[in-house]
């Protein structure tokens, strides 16, 4: 045993004893110093901002995957190469898969063949946060449905509750299955649920989400749904748009121009 280690253990032992003694009121002079939390300040007003996204399916090209590649790289989304264990934040679905209750009879065949970008809807009334037994997934002050990976117990209740299939579970250790580690965002650990976070790590730096930034066709518009003069609100007012499964009352924050 090295000298340093011995000294450290002695100190640690003394600290534990001092703590015990202080707790018992025996020798207050040895009391452990309290963690000073006095200077941890201000927080944003909940509900003031509601981030939302508008996807123009007319502009989104059928075989382009720029946004998916960029998002999955930036966020260290693992690729297990097997649909059973698949983890995905943003992906393309057929029109009828994305909008299973939308009218399809005698519909324009070009529309029916469209590939629609699907991701977490960041619902205003999220069923997933209600199902979570530890509040590991929760609605943030800015409308983003977030996951605290440190707290998730991996019960997958949110996955059963999400009517959009937006959540993925880490069935295996994700680290060895990430081709190229990105420094933009941490990885996850085995046994927790993950999904799109609307790039909250970029929003805090005043940057647009990675998918929006990477779209060569500018088919994705991102903005504050609570701000009447934002670009997204103007486009929503000027176009016919759809949400996925609006009949469930989840109030998705992702809209689609068909």
């Amino acid at each position: 045993m090295s000298q340093n280690r011995r000294e450290f253990l002695k100190k640690a032992g003394l600290g534990a004893l001092a703590g015990l003694g202080a707790a018992a009121g025996l020798f207050p002079a040895f009391a452990l110093e309290q963690t000073d939390m006095s200077n941890f300040t201000d927080k944003p007003v909940p509900g003031k901002v509601r981030w939302g996204m508008l996807i123009d399916t007319r502009k989104c090209l059928g075989n382009c995957t720029e946004c998916i590649v960029r998002c999955h790289h930036d966020h260290n989304v693992p690729d297990f190469g097997k649909s059973k264990n698949e983890v995905k934040w943003i992906w393309k679905s057929g029109y009828e898969n994305a909008f299973p209750t939308a009218s399809t009879q005698f519909q324009n065949p070009e529309v029916l063949e469209r590939q629609v970008l699907t991701l977490c809807n960041h619902c205003a009334e999220p069923p997933c946060t209600k199902a979570c037994p530890t509040e590991a997934t929760f609605k943030r002050w800015d409308g983003i449905v977030s996951i605290d990976y440190h707290r998730c117990i991996g019960c997958r209740f949110c996955m059963a509750a999400c009517p959009y299939g937006s959540r993925s579970f880490n069935w295996l250790d994700p680290r060895p299955n990430i081709k190229e580690l990105s420094t933009a965002y941490p990885t996850r650990m085995r046994g927790v649920v993950e999904k799109c976070n609307f790039c909250s790590e970029r929003l805090v730096k005043n940057e647009l989400p990675a998918c929006v930034e990477s779209c060569p066709e500018k088919a994705l518009i991102f903005g504050d749904l609570n701000k009447p003069d934002s670009e997204i609100r103007k486009l929503l007012a000027a176009n016919e748009t759809m949400q996925r499964k609006p009949e469930l009352g989840t109030l998705p924050s992702v809209f689609y121009i068909i």
């Binding site: 200077n39 941890f40 300040t41 927080k43 944003p44 943030r140 605290d148 440190h150």
Partner: peptide, 13 residues
Amino acid sequence: DSVREGNRTYVNP
């Protein structure tokens, strides 16, 4: 604070 409450600024003494 930062993950759950959006309070990201720490001011030291």
